[in-house]
Each structure stands twice: as structure tokens, then as C-alpha cells.
Design a protein around this nucleic acid. Sequence first.
DNA 1: GAAAACCCTCAAGCTCCGGTTGAACGTCGC
DNA 2: GCGACGTTCAACCGGAGCTTGAGGGTTTTC
Lengths: 239, 239
Amino acid sequence: MAELRAVGPPPRRTHTIGEVINLLRPEFPDISVSKVRFLESRGLIQPGRSSSGYRVFTDEDVQRIQYVITEQRDHYLPLKVIKSKLSAWDKGKESPVVPDSGPPPEAYFASSGVSLSTREILRSSGLSEELLDALEREGIIDPVELPDGTPVYTDSDLQIARAAHRLLNRGLEPRHLRGIRLAADRQTDLLGQLVAPLLRHRNPDNQRRSSEILADTSEASAIIQETLVRSRLRKLLEH
Amino acid sequence: MAELRAVGPPPRRTHTIGEVINLLRPEFPDISVSKVRFLESRGLIQPGRSSSGYRVFTDEDVQRIQYVITEQRDHYLPLKVIKSKLSAWDKGKESPVVPDSGPPPEAYFASSGVSLSTREILRSSGLSEELLDALEREGIIDPVELPDGTPVYTDSDLQIARAAHRLLNRGLEPRHLRGIRLAADRQTDLLGQLVAPLLRHRNPDNQRRSSEILADTSEASAIIQETLVRSRLRKLLEH
DNA sequence: GAAAACCCTCAAGCTCCGGTTGAACGTCGC
DNA sequence: GCGACGTTCAACCGGAGCTTGAGGGTTTTC
């Protein structure tokens, strides 16, 4: 082969599949060629191809594989879940070769339309009535009220209720969650400003662009925040 | 049957297997009689038996089941792992010898150990030098410095850099990201307090518990915040 | 006191996940 | 031109996590 690379970015090192295995073998003894090919078939990695059809792995591809198998080993995550974590991470880089959108941007904000009664959300979340009340007072959960005053909860509320339950179980109290709500409020404001001009003149196209922008930016800011928190907590643990 | 319970602690309520299912069904719609029996066969629960051979579940047994399926749902843990967590919990304080070498203790905070140079992170993130600088000034990214002053970036930094790039592309400016950093700081503090007592007396067990608590709570609070933001943005779009 | 509803065990079966194996064939480097 | 390495594709496999069904006992209800 003669992949001429006259001019261009730094001469990136690439590897064949066998080399990749040898690189990873020390850390992950049960890696195998077929496993790597399997991961590709499942869409977790997309190595390039040489003109003759051989897989060509960049260092980044190798890191990706490494990420996948550590998640498997350390957190027992199913490949599906790892894939979705990866694809959030991906969106950062890939962008030049995406002429039109794959997934509809609005899907990000789609709601299931499920609605729950107070009893149902209590049962489904495992929260007590008092705690649910407290969460509502903190603005963490806020159901819509029907004309007659009975509250109706969405599945977002349920998700929040469950996650809140986990926090409360660990010793946090409802008032501690206020900070989370405030952070969410501030983020909403920030991102909202980004699309405010568009929403001033509402039309289908602006609507579509707005939801695309919001989907993208809210995901990105969530990634930043979570990564920051995690790395700070890691330092805390390491002392 | 006449399980006489002459004197004793509170008159414990007990349940048959069918009652247990009905109790749990709302929160876990895919629970089933056979599943509970299966869990017993795998040694995760040990309900008592009536004189006629029926399983008899105490409230504690029910909680145990609840714990098991929550771990499955929220953390995708295999039953084997849940079992070992349970038996550690069982022994109360006693859990000295983790018999198997298998799962490394809570590696949620594991880092890949990859480190990048300034050139590499610029190339991999697509950021310009000025923007990277700006992000560092805002504390969004902060590399360790080697004795000679050259910065070293981790893969967390890369992830953040990429996500930040997405935000900047959408028209945000570095200073806008300060809010995200502050939110992350506050969350770190909050969660850090939760484990502060444990970390005061460092020993392997406290260390392990701390990382478990932090992994769980940081995930849960991220879920709450993201769900909140998303549902607020949805409302914004709907007008 | 009988029917209905509920419970039991045990073996077999089933789906999905995460790969492995093998056959048939192309390519690279010496 | 040979051996090491790469490719595809279909078939197979072992384990996890249940489900189903047969055959039979118990408790509740009318």
C-alpha cells in the first residue's frame, strides 16, 4: 500500500488489529482479535480501513477499546449502555462528515406522555408522602395541577423522584437538593438565552433549530459538569 | 398453622409470596413470583417457611428483594455481585476477606491514566490555543504541571475540552462556563461532606464505602439536574 | 365440602448477551 | 511463493436470568 500522506497533520501512528491486541494484552489478558471485531460489529468502535480492507486503528481507537473493556470489567455495564455513553462523548469530535442529521433533534425532548397520580408516584419511587412533599417544596419536583387541584406527575418527575430517593437514602436531606435545583435553573437560563432570538420569531424552522441547539448544548454542559465533579471527587478520594 | 409467637418484639407482619409481588409490583412492574423464587435459589434471599412449606417473607425480606432489583435496575449489577454486596451487608461489620479477586473495589473513579500534551489536547479537541487558555483561566480545565512547568492533561480534560468546544461553537463564551464550574464545585462540596466523616479515619473499608457512596450519589444528582434542565427546556420550547 | 385461588418442587426450555470457531479466501513482507 | 497476518460470514456456544409446565399439596371462600 502507498497511502500517500504528502502533507497534513502529524504522522499519526496507526496499528493493525494484531498490534492492538498486543498493546492491550498486558492490561487485559482476555482481549482477543475476535472480541475487537465483535465490538466493531456492535458499533462501539469504528476503526478506519486500509485500501486493502484491513482495519486501521489510531491511538484514539485503542483508547476507546480500552475504555469499553474497563467499563465492562469495573462496572459490569452492558455494551448497549457503554455504547450510549460513548456516543454522547463522540458527538464532540465527529461533525465534518455529517451532512444531515441521523436522529431527529426533537427526540431529545420527547416526553413519554405518561402521567401519574400521587399514589402512583409514591409507589413507583418508594418515597414517603412527607419526602415527596418536601421535594415539591424545594421545587425539585413540581407537578402540574388540574383545575380541581389534584397534582399530575410526569415520567420526568418519576425519574427525579427515584434519583432523589437514592440521595436521601445516603443521608442527604431535601433542603440539600435545593442547590441542585438552583444549578438547573441557572443552566436553563443560560441555554435559554442562546435560543431566545430564535424563539422570538417562531416558525417551524426556528423551532427545529432551537431544539437542536438546546439538545446539543444541554448535553455538552451536563458532560462538563459531571466530568468535573467526578474528577474532583476522585482527587478527594485520593487525598 | 399456629406459629405461636407468645411474647416478643413488634408483631411482625409477614407475607406470602403473592403478597410480596403485589407489594413490589407498582415500583417494579416486571417482578414475578418465579423471579422471587429464582432469587432464593441463587441464595440472595432466605425467606422462612411455614409448617406447610409456604415461603414466609418478613418486611426485611421484602426490603432485601427491593434492594436486589434496584441494584439490577440502577447499576446493572449481576446477581453474583449483588449477592456478595448483600452478604457483606449481612455480616454487618464483618467482611474482612473478599474471597474472590474478581471485581476491583468500586472503580467508578478509575482514570484511564492516559495523559496528553498541550499539542495533543488541542488537536484532539479542536480548540484553539486561546480558547484552551481561556478555559484554563475559568478553571474549567486545569492540567497538572510538571516540575518544569509543562502542563499535562488527562482524558477527563479531553472530554471536557470537547464538550466545551461544542458549547463555544454554539455561541457561548468561556466566561459563561464559569457557572458550570461553580455548580460542579458546589456539588462536589455537598457530596464531599457526605463522606467526610469516613475519610477522617482512612482505612481500606472506609475508602471503599466512600467511593461507593460518591459514585451513587454523584450519579443520582446528575440525573436530577439533567432531568430538571431537560424538562424546563422542553417547556420553553413548547412555549 | 367442594371449587377456586394460591402455594410447592423440579426439570426443561428459552432469550439475550458476549463472544468463539471454522471455512474459505485475500494481502503483506521476506 | 510461503508463512504470518488480515478479511467475511454463518454457525455455534456457555452463562445469566428467568419462564413454563407437569404434577401435586394447602388455604380461602362460598
